[in-house]
Simulated scan of single mutants.
Amino acid sequence: MITYEGGGLRALAEDGRWPELLAAYRQGRAAAVAEAGEEAAAALTAPLGHLIAYAAPPELAVRLFDPDGGAGTAAGVADHDAGPLWEVLATRHSWLRLAPLLGPAPVRRLVAHTRALLGEDLSYGSEPDPEGVPLRLEPWEAAGWDETARVREYLPGGGARSALLTLPASREGLGGVELPAAAQSAGRPDGPRVARALAGLGALAPWAATACVRGQAPAAAALLARDRRVVGGYLPFALAYPALVRAAAVGRSRGCAHGRLGLWRALAAMARAVGSGFPGDPGGPGGPDRADPAEGASGIDRGEVNALVARMRCFTWQEPSAGLHHLHVALEDPAGGVAWVVSGSQEL
């Protein structure tokens, strides 16, 4: 079976013989699929795929994802080494170079949103996102983190550097806070929109717990915090945004574009869940219903999401023992009196 371990393949790379390397990748992947299945094939050929995605000319690198080589030869969105192969490719070339070349729609979309995260404005001359997620960063998306830290920094021979997911990152700006003792009595919202928003937040960080409460952010935090007395405080949503995006990229098979798309879905569901789940409230039992994209209406409403972010209050707190990846944040929508909480930690 052909893998990147052979010195001959490294020599081909040094000589720029990329068509031969692509042929070796396709041959090795197809043979591995036939012998061991799709998942094993993706793992065995990923190091060579990384090399091609990182260093080959874009005209050839995009063909990693092209099924024209036959069954089992094309990389999919889950093929990864230090990170998804499509994310490696997206960090190496502008959308102007890649747009005319990329074929498969799922890969094309993830590459486009990676380029948006890296600061490109794709809102003009590009096909619109199917869900309505903007193809350029909103000001609140760009405000909270440095452009160079938004996506993994990939290395030519394999491997990557990325910032740790830590929220809160330190005690700076935080203080002693007594969380409410009877958060449960504030009421747990119910209804399809609340469930959809919780599912969206849970998809961002499957290793974390999520909950929703009718009340303020500290009441939501009390549902999942280990102690009533915590070191915590409020911060702008722009400073919480990077951690929420990175949460979906914990693990090598997912990239930060997954996090951005998932967070926009969750925020859209949260915006539509204002007041839902309570008798007589708009959208709740006995109240008038509103259109929902998941129920056949149009996609994400950027104006609704921007309005939610503008009014949202974010509360974060420290836990006594946090893993190297940790996320502890409650998101309060004062307009609806509803707060959402995501809390969990994970070792590397």
Rank of each mutant, 00 (worst) to 15 (best):
D292W: 14
P84W: 09
D15V: 03
A243L: 06
V231G: 03
A53S: 12
P242I: 11
H258T: 07
P206G: 09
E59P: 05
A30K: 13
R115S: 04
A74L: 10
R302T: 13
T3Q: 06
V107S: 00
F237Q: 03
P104I: 01
A197N: 01
H113T: 05
E14M: 08
N306I: 05
L261C: 07
L155P: 07
A46N: 03
P189E: 07
L167M: 13
L165P: 02
P168W: 08
A271F: 14
G49M: 04
F315A: 03
G275E: 09
G215N: 07
A203W: 01
L198P: 01
A199V: 09
A335M: 12
F237M: 12
A112L: 09
A116E: 00
R26G: 04
A74E: 10
W207E: 05
R313K: 15
W95R: 05
Q184L: 15
S185Q: 14
T45C: 12
L9N: 04
G337Y: 02
R115N: 06
L308T: 03
A163V: 14
G16R: 05
D281H: 08
R108K: 15
P104V: 06
L21G: 04
V305L: 11
A205P: 01
F237A: 07
L96I: 13
G76K: 05
G303R: 15
G132Y: 04
V231Q: 15
R152N: 13
L64I: 08
C314Y: 02
F65N: 05
Y234M: 09
G72M: 11
S276T: 15
L174D: 08
G259M: 08
A211Q: 00
E120R: 02
E127F: 01
D81N: 08
L85C: 06
